[in-house]
Every structure is written in C-alpha cells, then in structure tokens.
Design a binder for these strands. Structure first.
Length: 606
RNA sequence: GGGGCUGUAGCUCAGUUGGAUAGAGCGACGGUUUCCUAAACCGUAGGUCGUGGGUUCAAGUCCCGCCAGCCCCGCCA
C-alpha cells in the first residue's frame, strides 16, 4: 500500500496548502503541517489511514480540533484523486480523520499481486550519478564470524541467523549485498596451534591432505593446555607467531591446514542452515594495518601512551576518571582488533580497485561490543574514511539465555555447540511428528518424516530467534519454538500447508479470472493484511529489525486461519470460489516470500 | 567511577515520527468438528507500562532524577 499512501499524501498536502496558505502560516503551524503525514490507522476499526494534525493545530490557530478536521475532510472529498481511492473520510474522536480505501482500489491491488513474483513490491531505485566510481547500491553485512580452530556455538547463532535474514531482505530490495564472514583466522592463538600441530602431526606439513583434525576443539584444548603449563612450549609458540607473520613457508602451510579444517566444519553448519557467506577473515587486512597506523599518524590522531599508539576520544573515560585510550598499536608493535576493524572499514568504503566501494556497512554482533564499535566508528570518522553519503552501523543483539534467565550453557556449565542445538531441535520435531502421526492414524514414509522434522527443527530455531526484538536478550526454549501454537515457525508453516491442501483438493491457485468479488469481512481483513507487505519490508530494510517481518507473517497467518475456519473456499459458488482461491494464492506467496526473507524453508505437507 | 542495554498481564514478548479504550502468544477457565489437515477457530479472566518528577491538548513512547537486572571499560576479539 506504499504507492497508495504516497498518492494520498500528495492529496493531503494539496488540501493543506489550500486550507492553510503557506504565506499565512505561523512558524509553529508550518512545522506542524510539514510534519503532517498520513499514518497507518492505529486500529483496524479506524480504517486504513489516519490524519492527526487537527489536534496540534487547534491550540495554535484557535479553532476546535473537530472543526479543523472537518475542514480537511471536506477538501479531501472534493479531490478526484482521493475519491478514486478512498471512501468518504470520517472525523472521529477529538479530531482524528479516519480514511479507508474503497473496495474497488483494494481489488485492483489484488489483481496486481496475482501474477507478480515480487507481489507488487518495486525494486529500490539507486541514483546512478557516480556509478563509475562507486557501487552505490552495495552493502556489506558482516556477520557470523566464528574463530578458526574453535567450534561454532550458541554465541554465533544470533549473528548468523539475523545477519542472513537482513542480507536476504536487502538483496530483495535491490541492494548488492556482500555477506562477509570476518572469521578469526589470525592472531596470537595460532602460535600455539601451529606449534602443537608440528609436534603432533608433523607429516601434515609435507604431504597434502594427509590429515584430518577430526576434533578441532580437542586439538585447541590440548594446545591451550600445553601453552598454559609448559614454558618451553610457550616460547616456541611465541616465535611461531613471528614466523607466521613474517611468512615462513611451513608456518603458513600449518596455518592453512588449520583454516581449511575449520572451514569444512563451518561449512557443514552453513549448509544445514542454508546460509551463504564469503569468507574474508582478519588475515585479509594484515598488510593494510600499517597504512591504518600511518594514516592516523599523518592526521595527528595518534598519541603515544606508555609505548602504545592510541587514539583518545571525547567521552571515553576510564575507571579512574582519566581519558581512556583506544589502542591501535600495542607497545610491542603488534596490532589488535581495533586496528583490524579500522582497516576493514577503510577498505570496505574505499573505491575499487583498492576497496569494496560500499555505501552501507552493517555489523551484526552482540550488544557487548557496542562501545568498541562506537569508538572504532568515531575514529574512522575523524580519519575521514567514511564518505558523507555512506552509513556505518552496528546492529547489536542480546544474549541467548536459558530457561533460568542466565547465559545458555550445558548442565555441566560448558558452552553449547551449535550442531547439538540443531540436532536436538530436529530430533524433538521428529518425536512430535511421530506422536502426531500415531494419534491421527496417518502413515508416512521415512523420507517424509525426515524432511518434515529437519525443516521444522531448523525453521523453529531460526524463527524463534528472528521473531524477537534482537536488542533484548532472548530466552531459548525448545518447547516454545517447536510449539504448534502461538508465534512460532510451525504455526506459520501450518498455514501454508492448509493452502497447499486446498490446492491438492482441486483448488486452482493460478487465478486468471477478471471477475473477482468479495463480500465477507474475513475476506477484507485478509486483503488489507496482504497489502501491508511492502511497507513491512521497507521498515525492515530501514530499521534492520527482522522481528517486524515475523510479527507481520504471524498476524497474516492468524487472519488467514480465521478466514479458513469461517469461510468455505472449495465449496463456495462462483465468483466467490475463484476470488477466495485468489486470496489463498496471494497468502501462500506472501508467506513463502516472507519466510524466504527470514531464511526459512517451507513445506507442502507436514 | 564512566558508558550501554533492559524493566509492559502469572510466564515469554509486541508496541513504527508522541495519538483514540495499552496488544499478542503461552498458561488458566469455558465452548466449537457429518465440512478444504482441530497443529485450527470462538469466548472469559488477567495491567499503577520499575519508580518519582517534568514537557504536551495528548506520554509505555520525549527530558531529568532514582531503583533493579545484565553487559562493556589499556595493550584478547
């Protein structure tokens, strides 16, 4: 309904100019009127849109608000564009104007969506002014980012799922999205890993693919244990770090081996989750770090503090009340994560071929890193690496908590592996399904059961995460996410299954009739909800909050279920039968598109 | 000490630039099936929006104070 609301806004502005000529407006009046917009109705019974400006105007121009509202309403009614789209405006309450779209317009909107893959949602338009020098629709989303030689755990869950969904939404809108996996593939921990590898599996360095480090986590633990306990090992590890950084052949081979092994493990998870990422780890920025230091130095931003190269920012104060530095280069000459992040910002925004030339950078990491990113963004701004028309934003999310409200851990207090989480969700979905088949005396083959439980399990995990406002902490519960009632993946999937059922029983969802007609309130409710899709997607694109899309899909499913329950489709007479099939068809397409944007697969039967 | 996030029904959470009687779901209680998958639908009960001020015609929403919980704060990422 974005198009319609745009048209109506023009109509509204024309009316306001006529009633309140610009030259007669006081400052306050003009500020009220310039902020005046057509708002979506706060409740369905108020229609589709509302206009509220009569209330703030009342005091300023000393007229009763209802009188002002009536005046605006009268002007709207005289406007031909308005009359084509809407029913007569209604002045309500203390001075609200309620507007509802007429059925002719609603039906023509339904026709538009019937045979449109994008369901009437236009691609975003990008200015092409500087096309040669910049990819002005290129966005980088930095998400997932596990560490090499460690296993993915719950901590990576939210970043991965939320980042993927945001990427899908922006891609659908027309952005060119670079999905960057900023893996931890560099740094001091590789010293001990390489040293350990050389000692335990030395042949790995000289023969290709001879070794599978099947349990990297254990391998990491062993290395860490030796590092903590054995001073000789410690020294070897430290010099190994230097070897690696100076590019010694066998150190690099060992490093590659570890990275490849990890990559394989990560990929298994990404495949199961159907998530695509381009790996570009910390090591990528290694040879750009010196430039970061030099550039900051040239811009007089660096201060030597106790041997470390630091940037001091306003508002950063330490425990003792003294200004607190952000360390860019350690006193031993080494770099840290602020340095890498700065190099990444610089590279991602710089024009090709020496950069990505992106216009929007999005970092999907936990909220704990908020102040780190705030500081790093500040520095990048001071260094003038962020062009005016570019946006750099941190998209934070809260902790994953268990039922007890504490950070999610296993019973023995260990971090939960992501694989186990997925397996358990699928297993539970399977148990539920088998129980259900029994009570319904249905029989299904093994492959059906596996497919459904896998889809439902993964969908449940993703949806549970996405459906919550990402900023607050999120309470993880298998029971809730797999529940067949409420705002859950299974509930949404079921709505789609019902539509597929109608199709199987002879309902042709490929509606081409030009004779569509609606009479029932349940039909109109469904239509109105269907037409909100475009504004919901626009909102997610702007606010980067996938839970808004989830909320919408849930409401749509509820309204559809009500419709399904109360309004016969297949048994209805024409033209109602075809008209209702059209609604089923668009509902199905809307749910599929929405779920797809969340990264969740759907089912025909379950 | 400084900074950030959170606080809404018994529980888990929505709540879009400030708008009409604060919304869902779960749980509780009651009802609906010769009919497209009842994994659904309908109804009832349930609230001092942490707290105290302020701004406004209008505050869950904006501003200030306070309380509680979680997180971050020099050479880890």
């Amino acid at each position: 309904m974005l198009e319609i609301s745009k048209k109506l806004e023009d109509v509204l502005n024309r009316a306001l100019v006529k009633i309140f000529p610009k030259e007669d407006r006081s400052n306050k009046t003009s500020s009220i009127l310039s902020g005046t917009k057509l708002l979506p109705a706060s409740k369905p019974e108020f229609g589709d849109f509302q206009i509220n400006c009569a209330l703030p105007l009342a005091k300023e121009i000393k007229q009763p608000p209802r009188q002002i509202a009536q005046q605006i309403a009268n002007h709207l009614q005289k406007d031909n564009d308005y009359l084509q789209i809407c029913n007569a405006p209604i002045v309500a309450g203390p001075g609200f104007i309620n507007i509802s779209i007429n059925s002719k317009t609603l039906i023509s909107e339904i026709y538009v969506r019937l045979n449109d893959e994008r369901l009437g949602i236009p691609l975003k338009e990008f200015s092409t002014v500087k096309k040669e020098e910049k990819n002005n629709n290129r966005v980088i989303i930095d998400f997932s980012s596990p560490n090499i030689a460690k296993e993915m755990h719950v901590g990576h869950l939210r970043s991965t799922i939320i980042g993927d969904s945001l990427a899908r939404v922006l891609e659908f809108c027309g952005y060119e999205v670079l999905r960057i996996n900023h893996v931890g593939d560099w740094g001091t921990q590789f010293g001990m890993l390489i040293t350990h590898l050389k000692e335990v599996i030395p042949e790995a360095l000289y023969t290709k693919d001879v070794v599978e480090i099947s349990d990297l986590v254990n391998f990491y633990r062993q290395a860490k244990k030796r590092f903590d306990e054995d001073p000789v090992f410690q020294n070897k590890s430290r010099s190994e770090v230097v070897n690696l950084q100076t590019g010694h052949q066998d150190s690099l081979i060992a490093w590659q081996l570890l990275c490849n092994q990890s990559r394989k493990e990560f990929q298994k998870i990404y495949d199961r989750l159907d998530i695509k990422l381009t790996e570009r780890g910390e090591s990528f920025y290694n040879n750009l770090l010196v430039d970061v230091i030099n550039d900051l130095k040239n811009k007089d931003l660096l201060i030597n503090d106790q041997g470390a190269q630091c940037v001091f920012l306003d508002g950063f104060v330490g425990k003792d009340g003294k200004p607190q530095p952000i360390i860019i280069q350690k006193s031993d000459g080494g770099f840290n994560y602020a340095t890498t992040d700065l190099a990444a910002i610089k590279y991602r925004l710089a024009p090709p071929p020496n950069g990505d030339g992106a216009v929007r950078l999005i970092y999907v990491t936990d909220a704990g890193q908020a102040s780190h990113f705030f500081g790093v963004f500040q520095i990048a701004k001071l260094a003038k690496w962020i062009p005016i028309d570019c946006q750099v934003e941190h998209v934070p999310f809260g902790l994953v908590q268990g039922d007890d409200g504490k950070k999610l851990k296993t019973r023995s207090g260990e971090t939960i592996r992501l694989v186990e989480l997925l397996d358990e969700a699928i297993q539970r979905a399977k148990t539920d399904l088998i129980d259900r088949l029994k009570t319904e005396s249905r029989s299904e083959n093994e492959s059906f059961i596996n497919k459904v439980s896998t889809t439902v399990g993964i969908a449940a995990i993703k949806y549970a995460d996405l459906s919550q406002n990402r900023i607050s902490n999120y309470q993880f519960s298998f029971n809730k996410m797999l529940s067949l009632q409420g705002n859950t993946a299974p509930y949404l999937l079921y709505a789609l299954v019902r539509i597929a059922g109608i199709s199987r029983k002879g309902g042709d969802l490929n509606v081409e009739s030009q004779n569509i007609l609606f009479n029932e309130p349940q039909e109109w409710n469904l239509i109105r909800k269907l037409l909100q899709l475009d504004s919901v997607i626009a909102e997610v694109e702007k606010e980067l909050l996938p839970n808004r899309l989830c909320g919408y899909l849930f409401e749509l499913s509820q309204i559809f279920n009500r419709f399904y329950d109360q309004i016969p489709v297949l048994k209805a007479n024409e033209p109602s039968r075809t008209s209702r099939l059209a609604l089923c068809s668009i509902t199905a397409e809307t749910l599929k598109l929405g779920m797809n944007l969340l990264g969740i697969p759907t089912l025909e039967r379950m």
